[in-house]
């Protein structure tokens, strides 16, 4: 693989991650949103495998494999089960309309690229060029957490934020060993399972996943 192809493929995968984050902002169907999350996970795994293949680092390829298992298969399957268990509402309306969310996402992408200029300049490389995309995914996912008021969509938002961070970690070659990476993934999986159980309890107590029901604890 030439450096140029490598750079372009990394850019493509990072671009897919941003597009997935934006799509999740305004789609209504819960199962579609989970599938978008899986697609983003696949792009993330592709980044890890690309980095590993280019630098002949087996550990990065292993991380990519772990991402496929965890972020493309297991977690989306858990979330799709939550969707299947919702009897009535499989749609969720965003709080803000589509055009506003897209403008918001565009602004956040620009902010991400501006904020990370120093970071890219610190150690120029094909990986560093793709770093800002990871930050953009983080910011857009954060935005999504604010504008969506549905338990499942919030979990997806959190996972997309985490995907963005994982992309930064892989691209920065952050010196996080495989063991630590596995432990981080385990933590993430546990958090998702906790949220799944909580959303199941929410179903029985409130009869739905809309977070407007959460209004008892106020000052």
């Amino acid at each position: 693989m030439t450096t140029d192809t490598y750079r372009q493929l990394l850019g493509l995968a990072a671009g897919v991650m941003i597009v997935a984050a934006v799509l999740a902002l305004w789609r209504r169907s819960l199962s579609a949103i989970v599938r978008i999350l899986a697609a983003q996970g696949l792009a993330l795994a592709a980044i890890a495998v690309l980095v590993g293949a280019y630098h002949h680092e087996v550990s990065d390829i292993a991380v990519g494999g772990m991402f496929v298992v965890l972020k493309v298969v297991v977690i989306p399957a858990v979330l799709l089960r939550v969707v299947r268990d919702t009897n009535n509402q499989r749609q969720s309306e965003p709080l803000v309309n589509v055009s506003t969310t897209i403008v918001g996402a565009a602004i956040l992408t620009v902010v991400a690229f501006a904020a990370t200029r120093g970071l890219v300049g610190l150690h120029p490389s094909p990986e560093a060029d793709a770093l800002p995309a990871g930050f953009a995914v983080v910011l857009i996912a954060f935005f999504g957490l604010v504008v969506r008021r549905n338990a499942l969509v919030q979990v997806v938002g959190f996972l997309m934020l985490e995907n963005g961070i994982a992309a930064v970690a892989v691209l920065a070659g952050a010196g996080i060993s495989l063991t630590v990476e596995m432990a981080v993934a385990l933590d993430l999986l546990l958090a998702v399972l906790v949220l799944q159980i909580l959303s199941a309890r929410m179903q029985t107590k409130f009869g739905g996943l809309e977070l407007d029901h959460l209004s008892e604890l106020t000052d």
């Binding site: 970071l119 957490l145 961070i165 070659g173 906790v194 909580l198």
Partner: peptide, 26 residues
């Protein structure tokens, strides 16, 4: 619910900060 979501998102940002620091250290 609020505890896990807000806490996890906050800690995700802390992890990003940790990675950026490692990048600077490298």
């Amino acid at each position: 619910w609020k505890y896990v979501i807000i806490g996890s998102v906050g800690l995700a940002l802390a992890f990003l900060g940790t990675i950026v620091l490692a990048y600077a250290a490298r």
